[in-house]
Amino acid sequence: MADTEALTPLADRVISTADATVARIAEVPFRAQVGLRVDPKSSAAERIATAIGAMLPGDPGGVVVTRDLVVLWLGPDEWLIIGPVGAQDRIERTLNSALGGGFGAVVDVSAHRTIIEVSGERARDLLNSGCALDLHPRAFPAGRCASTLLARAQVVLVCCDARAPRYWVVVRASFARYLADWLADATTEFAPDVNDLAQL
């Protein structure tokens, strides 16, 4: 009988960094991810808001957090809904039911992407070494997201916490290993120099 155990894109990667106090990199595995396209001014969007317990974010880069969902604004009529492990079927059913045959699309993209969490005191600097966005808390506070390039890989970057820096990097599965390795390697730029430590 074939082995059907699911594996994440980074299942065989032990992500080690030069200094874990500088930045920590870890996969957030198996989160449900469902893409939604719908006219935000339609009655279907209102029904979806009622069904998920929150209005769909309407401003560019907006993020809405409900009891168990994170809703990311990707475009004027496009959102990515991230939920608990294994919840994609439930989310799909909820959205399709609320859509009610109206114009729109609901697509399970859970296997298409994974999430890499980057946290630690130099997390912002680490990300900025490969990303052109201004990640200062005044420009990119908690509760914001952006589609951007990180180390030439297309990602959706989410600021989860700006004070104790913590970010989600939503990346296509085919780029996950490359990006995790790049991030781990890039931390060496921010790790204390061995000679400096010897003088302490």
Rank of each mutant, 00 (worst) to 15 (best):
P57E: 09
R24A: 08
I116W: 00
A164R: 04
I25G: 02
D193C: 07
A49R: 03
G102E: 15
L127Q: 06
E27N: 08
L150Y: 06
V194M: 01
D185T: 04
I15E: 00
V169C: 05
V109I: 13
A198H: 09
P141G: 14
G62E: 02
G120D: 13
I82L: 10
D68E: 09
A164D: 10
E117D: 07
G83E: 10
T50Y: 15
M55L: 15
N96L: 10
A23E: 02
Q199M: 15
L10K: 04
N96I: 11
T8H: 09
R90V: 06
R172I: 00
I91M: 08
A54D: 07
L157F: 05
R166Y: 02
P192C: 07
W168I: 00
A142I: 03
L126V: 08
A173R: 12
T50H: 14
N195Q: 13
G53H: 02
L200T: 01
V64M: 05
R67A: 13
I52H: 11
G120P: 01
A32D: 13
R67I: 09
A26M: 06
V156H: 08
A54P: 04
P76E: 10
M55N: 13
T8I: 00
L197Y: 01
G101L: 02
G35C: 00
R113P: 06
Q88C: 10
R138S: 13
P76W: 01
G62Q: 11
Q199D: 14
V158T: 07
A20Y: 14
V71T: 12
G143V: 04
D196E: 13
S129A: 09
L197D: 14
L72G: 14
Q33W: 00
A11N: 11
A49E: 01
L74I: 05
D125A: 14
V118H: 11
A151H: 15
V34E: 08
G75E: 12
A45S: 15
S119T: 04
A186W: 02
N128D: 04
Q33H: 06
G35Y: 08
R113G: 08
R47C: 04
A45N: 12
G83N: 10
